[in-house]
Computed example of a mutant assay.
Amino acid sequence: MSDTEFDVLAIGDAVVDVIAPADEALLASEGVPKGSMRVIDRAEADRLYARMGPAQETSGGSAANSMAGIAALGGRAAFVGQTGSDQLGKIFAHDIRAQGVQFDTPPLTTDIATGQCLILVTPDAQRTMNTYRGASEYLSVDALDADLIARAKIVYLEAYLWDHEAPRAAMKRAADLAHEAGRKVAFTLSDIACIDRHRADFVGLLESDRIDILFGNAEEARALAGSADLETAVAELARHAGLCVITCGAEGAMAVQKDATAAVPATPPRALVDTTGAGDLFAAGFLAGHAWGRPLEASLRLGAAAAAEVIADYGARPLGALDGLAAN
C-alpha cells in the first residue's frame, strides 16, 4: 500500500469533552449510575454543565481520540466529523489538528451546536459520560472525500453514529469507497447500548462483508453474537469480520482471525488517574500496529501499552508523544 498517505482515517462523533472531578453525591442527586454512558439533550447538557466544578475542555469523541493516539504514536491519521460554527467547534478543530491529525470537515452553517460530552470523574477514577451529540448527528455523505478515503490504509467507523440516518448513510458509503480502493474497513461497537438498539443492522454489516476488522469488548461480543460463551461468540463474529479484536478489561485483550489467534495481558498503568479513553487508545495502538504490518500479538501489546498511558493521565487524549511505545 505504498500509495497511501494515512495509516487510518476515522469517521465519528466530533465532540468536546468537558471533564471535571465529581463526588458520589452529585451522581446520586442527578440519578445517574456511576460509570454509565448516556445520551442527553441540549437542555439537560446545559443544566448538568452548570452543576459541574472547574473543568478541562478538550476535543474528544471515541474515534477522534483514537486518531489522536495514532498521531502520538508517530502514525499518520485523519478524521471526518461534523462540528457547528461555535466556540466548541473551534476548540475541536484546533485540538485535533494540533495533535497532528488531518481534519478538513467544514462546520455547519446553521445554529446547531457542536456536540459535547460531560464527563464526571469520581475519586476511584471511574468516569460517567453524558453526551449531547449536537452537530455530529448531521454528518452526511456530502462530507466524504473519496480521494481522502482511498489514501488511507484503514477506514475506522464508530457505532455511536449509527443512531441517525445521515451519518449512517455516510459510514456505509465510506466503507464502499474504501473497499473500491482496496482498503480495509474497521468498525468499533462503541457501547453495549448501541448493540441493544442496532444489533440486526450490525449483524447485517458483518454478513455483507463491509467490515474487515471488528473492535469490541467481551460484553459487546457476546451480545452481538448472541452467545454467553466468549470463545464461541468471537469465533462466530470472526467468520464474517475476518479479524476480531476484543478487550477483556483487566484480563487483557485478544485478536482472532480465521487462521490465527493472539492474546496479551493488560499493561499495568504507572498510575490510575482516569479511565476515560482507555478503549480508544487501545484501538489506536492496535490499528497503528496493524497498519504498519506488525503481527497480531505485537499490535495487541501496543494497544495495551497506549491504553495504560492514557489511564495514567487526566482526559481521553495522550498528553505527549507515545512514539517510544511504538519503538518497543
Rank of each mutant, 00 (worst) to 15 (best):
F6G: 06
D7F: 02
V8M: 02
D17A: 10
P21S: 11
E24L: 12
L26W: 08
K34H: 04
E44T: 10
A45F: 04
Y49N: 15
G53M: 02
A55L: 01
A55N: 11
E57N: 10
G69S: 07
A78Q: 05
F79M: 08
Q82P: 06
T83R: 08
Q99A: 13
V101G: 10
F103G: 06
A113D: 08
A113V: 01
D124W: 01
M129L: 13
D142G: 12
R151Y: 00
A152D: 10
L161W: 00
L161T: 01
P167R: 01
R173Q: 14
D176K: 07
R183A: 08
A186C: 10
A193L: 05
G204L: 03
G204A: 03
D209Y: 01
I211V: 13
I213Q: 11
L214Q: 08
A218C: 09
A233M: 03
V234F: 07
A238E: 07
T247V: 04
C248S: 10
G252F: 01
V256R: 08
K258R: 15
T261W: 03
A283D: 13
F286S: 14
G289V: 03
G293F: 05
P295Y: 05
S299M: 03
L300V: 05
A305R: 13
E309S: 11
I311R: 03
R317P: 14
P318D: 13
P318K: 14
